[in-house]
Computed example of a mutant assay.
Amino acid sequence: MWNEWWIWVAAGIGLGILEVLVPGFLFLGFAIGAGVIGLLLAVGVALSMPQLLVTFGVVSLVSWLVLRRVVGLRQGQVKRVHHDINED
């Protein structure tokens, strides 16, 4: 079952939809990893179960790190409130 490309693509699409519902680029790295695995299996690359999981983990981690670097928290993006509007 895990060697079926469409299962990985469906999982990637599901994680992509979940990313839309939960902000913060939390699931997008996993969605990219699942999509890459689905693409590799669709092309015909034969991987064993441990190789699938390690490849999925590495691709997900790398894509998550790239996403954090590109669209993550920027310098000065966090706003600190020094004045409470309810104090006046």
Rank of each mutant, 00 (worst) to 15 (best):
F56C: 08
Q75C: 02
G76D: 02
W8L: 05
I37P: 01
A11K: 06
L73Y: 00
T55P: 02
L47E: 05
L61N: 01
L28A: 13
F56A: 12
T55Q: 04
R69H: 09
S48E: 04
V54L: 15
R69T: 11
Q51L: 14
Q77V: 09
F25V: 09
G24R: 06
L28F: 11
A34H: 03
L18G: 15
L39V: 14
W64G: 07
D84Y: 09
E19I: 13
G57P: 06
L52M: 14
L28S: 12
G14D: 01
S63G: 08
Q77Y: 06
L73M: 12
G24F: 05
L26V: 15
G24H: 01
V78N: 08
S63K: 04
R68L: 09
G12Q: 00
P23C: 08
I7K: 02
M1W: 06
V62D: 01
G16E: 00
W5I: 09
I13N: 06
P50N: 13
L39T: 14
L67S: 04
I37W: 00
E4K: 10
F25L: 15
W5M: 08
E19V: 14
G35C: 14
N86C: 12
I32Q: 02
G14R: 06
L28N: 05
V36Y: 03
E87K: 15
F27S: 12
R74T: 12
G72I: 10
G12C: 01
F56M: 09
E19C: 14
V54F: 09
G76A: 07
L61Y: 00
R69M: 11
G16N: 01
V43I: 15
L52C: 04
V78Q: 10
A31F: 00
F56R: 06
L61C: 09
D88F: 10
V71E: 03
D84P: 05
V36A: 13
I7E: 01
A46R: 13
L15E: 02
K79R: 14
Q51F: 08
G72M: 07
V70F: 10
V58W: 02
V59Q: 04
I13H: 01
V54N: 06
V81F: 09
A34R: 01
L41M: 11
R80D: 02
S63I: 04
S60K: 02
V43A: 13
L41G: 10
G33D: 01
R74H: 10
L67W: 02
V45A: 12
M49W: 06
G16C: 03
V22K: 12
G29A: 03
A34K: 03
G38Y: 02
V22R: 10
Q77P: 03
D88S: 14
R80N: 08
I32C: 11
L52Y: 00
F56N: 05
G76L: 08
V62N: 01
L21D: 04
L21V: 15
L65V: 15
L28Q: 05
W2R: 07
L52E: 05
I17S: 11
L47G: 08
G38T: 04
I37F: 03
I13S: 04
H83G: 10
G44T: 10
G76W: 02
G76K: 09
W6V: 07
Q51K: 14
M49R: 12
G57V: 13
A10K: 06
Q75M: 07
I7M: 09
L65P: 03
R74N: 13
H83S: 14
A42N: 06
L61T: 14
W8H: 05
V59C: 10
G44S: 09
